[in-house]
Design a protein around this nucleic acid. Structure first.
Lengths: 336, 336
DNA sequence: TTGTAAGCGTTATCAA
DNA sequence: TTGATAACGCTTACAA
């Protein structure tokens, strides 16, 4: 019921070995022969059986992408960058979400990877997550995106710097009473969250500014979390004049909180985010943007390099991409 | 370098056939034997080779998801619904984008599918697209999402109805001079775009309202397209009092256009969208929401049913999911 | 440059 | 209930 390599070989009057070589573009095949084989393969509408090829060669021709979220902007944008590279390379992309560990029918990622893919890309899984450890310990080519880990190639931005830029922007505008809203008070080290908190605190202390504990507000790394965190700040008797949101999505939520208090970002309270989310321009949010598509693209390229080198390259230096401040209407000089 | 089924068989003192049966949970295996085999497999850290299994069984255990976009909200949200179902079913999800036909390293989808997956899910590819035709003609289990096609199972909303609901809402608010902004003037039939346009025109004519040609504005199905289209409407001397945007993203763009003209959605011009985009609540946009995650989930379940039935089920009736109007601040009664 | 043939690790048929 | 064993369709030494 399916044309096999034998049918092609027979029709072309050569051996299956020659067909295999000819179709894969290996050297040591007469150009005439190759052309004939290619033509006949096309005529017969021959399609190679990936399973057979994989079994015989030991290569799977696939890469797994492991991500905690599929539908969130950052993650889907990274994935689109990855996909474009993998498609060009003729590699299959296996998408695996690792969302909540207690989800229905949920499987730990590591066992699902073995013998199934040639390499793994992991998007923003905290390096302290034991499941990430398990994946890395598989010993196959791996690249991390948005997190870094000793000995594993990674593509990130400098999150400390990104937060510094954002915070410094507020300081430069004359703000002194500056709040921060983030996902959680106790952040795991080597995560974007942790580093962004660090950058904020660094700039504040360098500027000789105190961080009022009541102006540190943490919820979830989501729109709703940002709204909640900002609401908490606004119910203080002594409100901040500016707020650093650790992500654009949190900033969006913060904007809503402002609005429901009759306030406007920019004129009443300055607000800056990090990410360069699609919607930040629309919402007129000042943000420190990261090159999200490139994050995915470069990680994929790094991974392909490891795969074709046939080695887990602990030698590949972590790659940090630049960020850029976009000043918009949500930040303004402190009225004095 | 890898434990095979033979190692397990040897250690358990049974044949490879028994191991295979025991591990796959087939009947006709003594419970004692099964337990012993399972234990030993675990002890040896045995992992089945998918390629070998696929080659021998003829099943790939994978499903391809074909999508024109990965990072856009609608598509990534559908994909997340699909993923949760496939993960529970233990199926691999192969992600393939079919973006612009002249992209770098771009491959047509159909050839990439053959012998590689057990079924295909296609998200919102116009039914007139020849590449979709090719995919369907592969004759493998297929489910369509967001589009319908004669003889192919599909999961959609009633786009005509969705547009009707949105438009009727504007009419009920007293608006009579109503504009529409969409992706293109000449829409392919059986697409969401086409049907939404239809629903709008139907309600308008039923309400005895004329659609002023200058109030039909088309650009791209994006934020930028919406902005552009709304800008065109605003430069008319006789502006509309309300506008139906064929998608929330276009409505977002429209909101920006309003803002840059010093206008506000709701108080100056009413604006309604379709989709129920994540950000619609944040932007206070009235919209007709569709259950996007369910679209993906149900399509995946339909597909799995086809696959296990071992047949291309032309018998599966197209499934239409309900929509729901969320009235927010972007629409208001016409001031008289 | 080409052919021969031995795997690759399962599954499935048929006997026992 | 279990075991032999022949596929499954390709890749890859090795030989010619």
């Amino acid at each position: 019921m399916g044309i096999t390599i034998r049918d092609v070989a027979q029709a072309a009057g050569v051996s299956t070995a020659t067909v295999s070589r000819a179709l894969r573009g290996l050297p040591n095949v007469d150009e005439q022969t190759r052309l004939r084989v290619q033509r006949i393969a096309r005529e017969l509408d021959y399609v190679i059986s990936p399973s057979a090829s994989r079994l015989a060669s030991g290569r799977t021709g696939s890469v797994a992408v492991i991500t905690p979220h599929i539908a969130r902007w950052f993650f889907s944008t990274v994935i689109s960058g990855i996909e474009s590279v993998l498609q060009s390379a003729g590699m299959d992309l296996l998408l695996m979400s690792v969302s909540n560990p207690d989800a229905q029918g949920r499987q730990p990622p590591a066992p699902r990877l073995r013998r199934r893919v040639d390499g793994v890309l992991v998007i923003a899984v905290p390096s302290s997550d034991p499941e990430l450890r398990d994946v890395v310990d598989l010993g196959m080519p791996t690249s991390l995106i948005g997190v870094s880990m000793e000995g594993v190639p990674s593509v990130t931005i400098d999150d400390v710097l990104a937060a510094r830029i954002a915070t410094q922007h507020l300081v430069n505008l004359g703000h002194r009473r500056i709040g921060i809203i983030g996902g959680s008070a106790m952040t795991a080290p080597f995560t974007a969250e942790h580093d962004r908190q660090r950058g904020f605190l660094d700039v504040m202390s360098e500027a000789g500014l105190e961080v009022d504990p009541v102006l540190e507000s943490y919820g979830h790394f989501t729109v709703a979390g940002g709204e909640q965190a900002m609401t908490a700040l606004l119910t203080q008797r002594n409100r901040p004049t500016a707020v650093f949101a650790m992500s654009d999505e949190m900033a969006f939520g913060a904007m809503r909180a402002l609005r429901s208090h009759g306030l406007v970002a920019g004129s009443d309270i300055s607000l800056v985010g990090v990410d360069g989310h699609d919607m930040s321009e629309l919402l007129d949010l000042t943000t420190v943007a990261q090159p999200v598509v490139d994050l995915g693209r470069i990680a994929a390229e790094t991974l392909l390099a490891q795969i074709s080198a046939g080695a887990v390259a602990a030698s590949i230096a972590p790659c940090q991409l630049p960020t850029r401040l976009f000043v918009r209407g949500s930040t303004a000089a402190l009225a004095r």
